[in-house]
Write a protein that binds this DNA or RNA. Structure first.
Lengths: 247, 247
DNA sequence: CGATTGCCTTGACGCAGATCAAACCCGTCA
DNA sequence: TGACGGGTTTGATCTGCGTCAAGGCAATCG
């Protein structure tokens, strides 16, 4: 467990997620209070951040990298229930015990707050709880969209939807125009995708091959995807046949 | 559209959902403010409350009855993404346009608040936004549990899980002891169950028959279910083989 | 009263995706 | 250089659930 990485006590003002995380609405003095209870932790790809059922005495924001939330049945069937990207929030104020496994799928840096002081601060600081409410409502919407995918979409549609989500996120990060073929790196193994989509890894692999055969996408290596026609990908995803706006 | 039912301007102090809804934490004066912007609406079983995509100028609490949130793909595949019970909250502050279809599955009474004034009041009244945050976090947990069900459970497990949820809710409402066979009424048609579980209605029907054949449950009529051994039902549901505490 | 309608059950059959199994690719290590 | 291992692909076969179709039951209506 390499922990407590190289980054130490970064200034909130220069933080890359300053304007999207729980702290987005905070004033300078509020940031100063947060600085006092925060600390960074780093994880290598593959490491577990928390186990479901463990005591969890912090909440955190993802600063960089990607983490996943998963649930498991006793016989080992697994379902991913959240994909955590930079600025996303981990943990639940008021909860002692972690409800999900949290795993780093890439190298990961998190900005952690000791839970007790954070909860106290929330009571005094509407800027924090307002922002958290907003983020939670967004996550709920995302979860519901995911329920539609899990309950009703075909394997091919599921894959196309996942690719569309990753592509869209990547495009907004890079702020490059809508024009030209999108290109991005898949941050997940085939198995992780399967866990996310409620499929087996074999089916994931087959459907990716099929999309490639039908030239909806093309691959360089196993992880690098390029999408010549994003509208086409969205059609394959099944939801808004139209709606081809990026973001 | 029979609307604006018989109930008119009930006193918040005597409201059956007073202590579980968004208003749960409000003081007397805050309730008074809410009373000024609230109004009741009634719907008959089967009526649509809001269509996805429609402008929605109120938010609301379910007072009595049951409503559902559903999403639909253009080709008609439907997935229920929420089951709204008394005290649950409908609508999203800050959102103009409804994201889901809301339908009354039983006769339904809702306590509505005009959206604009409600949003303004939220800014001044931490008691409301705190409670809403808590409720939203609970819903998010429920949605994630549902993702596990949709992605990884078999048809039989899905049915058993749904029955367990309804049974549990019913038991807490009636506050009757854990002893004796549980009995309750299914508030959903086979089709609605199918939409909830990501199955077809035929499969729902077959699996209910199968659970009856295996005497996990017994039926009186098509809707009244009794469960001789709740632990057995939980085993069939697949999650906590143990965990047989009611609530 | 029979006819209609809404909801549910049951059967026969087919297919999408799971399962089982083998092999491939590529980076790392001895 | 060759062996190893993790991630991935592909093939063959099996099966749970969807699809299509027929009919049953109970409430309501003319």
């Amino acid at each position: 467990m390499k922990d407590a990485g190289p980054i130490d006590h970064q200034n909130c003002g220069e933080c890359p997620i300053r304007h999207r995380a729980v702290c987005a609405r905070c004033e300078t003095d509020e940031l100063a209070q947060l600085e006092r209870i925060k600390y960074y932790r780093s994880f290598e790809a593959g490491q577990t951040v928390v186990w479901s059922g463990d005591r969890m005495d912090f909440v955190a924001s993802v600063v960089s990298g990607i983490a996943t939330l998963t649930q498991t049945l006793e016989d080992g069937r697994r379902q991913m229930v959240g994909l955590l990207l930079p600025s996303d929030f981990v943990g639940r104020p008021g909860r002692e015990i972690a409800a999900y496994d949290v795993t780093a799928t890439t190298d990961l840096v998190m900005c952690c707050f000791r839970k007790k002081p954070f909860e106290e601060m929330m009571l005094r600081t509407p800027h924090i709880s307002q922002r958290l409410l907003e983020m939670t409502l967004d996550e709920l919407d995302a979860a519901r969209e995911w329920m539609l995918l899990l309950g009703r979409k075909t394997a091919r549609e599921k894959i196309a939807s996942l690719l569309a989500i990753v592509a869209r996120r990547d495009a907004t990060l890079k702020l490059r125009g809508v024009a030209g073929p999108l290109e991005f790196e898949l941050p997940l193994t085939r198995e992780a995708m399967a866990d996310y989509l409620g499929l087996t890894l074999e089916t994931v692999s087959r459907q990716i091959s099929a999309l490639r055969r039908d030239s909806v996408i093309s691959l360089e290596g196993k992880r690098r995807v390029s999408v010549p026609d994003f509208g086409r990908l969205l059609e394959e995803a099944g939801d808004d046949s139209d709606g081809g706006y990026l973001n």
